[in-house]
Design a protein around this nucleic acid. Structure first.
Length: 462
RNA sequence: UCCCCGGUAGCUCAGCUGGUAGAGCAGGCGGCUGUUAACCGCCUUGUCGCAGGUUCGAGUCCUGCCCGGGGAGCCA
């Protein structure tokens, strides 16, 4: 049987043809000689109304007993709906019960709290909101690939397991096959890491950046897009222990080029999602965040403003605003500062460039002023920082000096330094937390509700 | 990890200063209507997070623990 989704049915030019509907019941309204079944199959936000009467095969045996959550298959004709609320409906010649859902089905017709839905993560994709989130996720992921492909990037598959704990982006999850009850021990009585699977301690990756640099210095333009892991015990609406990160890395590229890339990137992805998911986006604007679409349009339509960090700090200091946290050179910008800059001061996306070296990572390109590095944050209204990136330090001596100055051992970075030893070129890249991007687009308040299976401290049930 | 707030029926929640629990929805039965978070009537459902304590009496007060949420730190 050829597959036709509800999305396909609703998208037909005109009523009249035969129709097959397979999906799950959102609600069943039974009247004396007619039943209305709201069927949803996840192909789009809307369901379709199946109308059954005494002439329908299975009317008494099946239809009259249907309850919310049951899976059904219906065959009939697509007709123009005489009722309000939908253009088409299906007049059923036959309705079959595919899988019943008992009266203990947890999803009721009325609204549930997201907290409750998290406890039934195996059923929550059947709700309007979570279903819409997953469709947006899908469209955004495809848009990301499309953007980089059209810009000449290669998708680089960076490793999930890494034996390098030198990335310095946060606490890491240890990966081991050692017997935790009685691990092999060295003569000194310590756990013998050499006996572990990789012959040394290994971890889940916290970032694909270093590997992406390897790729960029061979293929010129690469991006990674995959899961990353942080073992931080942070419990907030913006953090996950497992999240997806997008990290392009570009050879022969400086900070200006990188900022331009980030701007084209966001504009493309947002335009694509608005184009492909108008119904879902309208839903988010109506039910979750009134400005969801408007602020995406701002990113798409407005040129990004560039402000050097030093200037941003001065603007903030002169603003007359009473911020909770102080501003000053050498301090990181707080969320309130970022949002004031982009929302109030400029009114469109802002790229803050050239940050103090003291608060940024060792691999960032040291500017001539010796005080700042060629780093950037892209700030957007509603959330603040959406993208962080930098031109990388490609000069061997400078990089080694910074590694030493931060108390790190250059020997741990031998291959990273080799990239500067052999054919080093200026290069730059940024990182984007995919779930935060989805949060921005949908307006969903908690990051746990924009990923199918959230991993946070103490919770990995599903 | 720190600071706040919360945990009452399957779900959403009410329960004032302590006197042994209630509404809507869901579910069951009946009715009614081209209905659309349908509607009307009747009915069912609770170790009031767990363990102690105070009290004649605790959902309500106290202590500890567990779980959830919000904020902070850190970051993506």
């Amino acid at each position: 049987m050829a597959y036709e989704s509800i999305r396909g049915l609703l998208g037909r030019e005109a009523a009249g043809g035969s129709a097959v509907v397979r999906g799950w019941l959102r609600s069943a309204r039974h009247a004396k000689d007619v039943s209305f079944l709201d069927v949803s199959d996840g192909s789009c936000l809307s369901g379709i109304q199946v109308v059954a009467g005494p002439e329908t095969e299975g009317f008494e045996a099946v239809v009259r007993h249907l309850t919310t959550g049951s899976a059904i298959a219906a065959e009939g004709r697509l007709v123009d709906s005489p009722g309000k609320g939908q253009r088409f409906e299906v007049h059923a010649a036959k309705v079959e019960l595919v899988g019943a859902a008992g009266s203990d089905y947890p999803l009721q017709k009325k609204r549930h709290s997201f907290e409750f839905l998290r406890t039934i993560a195996h059923l929550r994709p059947r709700t309007n909101t979570i279903g819409a989130v997953f469709r947006i996720r899908n469209a955004a992921a495809m848009a990301i690939h499309a953007f980089f492909q059209q810009e000449g990037f290669f998708y680089l598959h960076s490793p999930i397991v890494t034996a390098s704990d030198a990335e310095g982006a946060g606490e890491m999850f240890r990966v081991t096959t050692l017997d935790l009850e009685s691990p092999p021990r060295t003569a000194e009585g310590r756990v013998d890491d050499a006996a572990d699977f990789f012959g040394r301690p290994s971890f889940l990756t916290v970032s694909g950046q270093l590997e992406a640099e390897i790729g960029a210095l061979a293929l010129s333009r690469v991006y990674t897009f995959g899961p990353t892991f942080r073992a931080e015990n942070s419990n907030t609406a913006r953090h996950l222990a497992e999240f997806w990160m997008v990290e392009p890395e570009v050879a022969f590229c400086d900070l200006d080029d990188l900022a331009a890339l980030a701007e084209r990137f966001l504009k493309f992805v947002f335009a694509e999602v608005l184009e492909r998911c108008p119904e879902d986006m309208a839903f988010f604007a109506e039910r979750i965040e009134p400005k969801a679409i408007e602020r995406m349009r701002t990113v798409i339509d407005q040129p990004f403003e560039r402000i050097a960090y030093r200037e941003a700090v001065e603007i903030l200091a002169r603003s007359g605003e009473s911020f909770e946290f102080p501003v000053g050179f050498g301090r990181d910008l707080q969320s309130e500062h970022e949002r004031w800059l982009t929302e109030t001061h400029v009114g469109r996306p802002v790229v803050v460039t050239d940050w103090p070296a003291s608060i940024k990572a060792f691999y960032m390109y040291r500017n001539d002023d010796a005080e700042t590095v060629a780093a950037m944050d892209v700030l957007v209204g509603g959330v603040g920082e959406l993208i962080g990136g930098s031109q990388r330090e490609h000069r061997l001596e400078k990089l080694e000096a910074t590694i030493r100055a931060q108390g790190l051992d250059p020997a741990d970075y031998w291959w990273y330094l080799d990239l500067r030893r052999y054919g080093s070129v200026p290069h730059a890249g940024f990182g984007l937390g995919f779930e935060r991007l989805v949060q921005f687009m949908t307006g969903m308040a908690n990051i746990r509700d924009v990923i199918p299976f959230a991993r946070v401290p103490g919770q990995a049930e599903f």
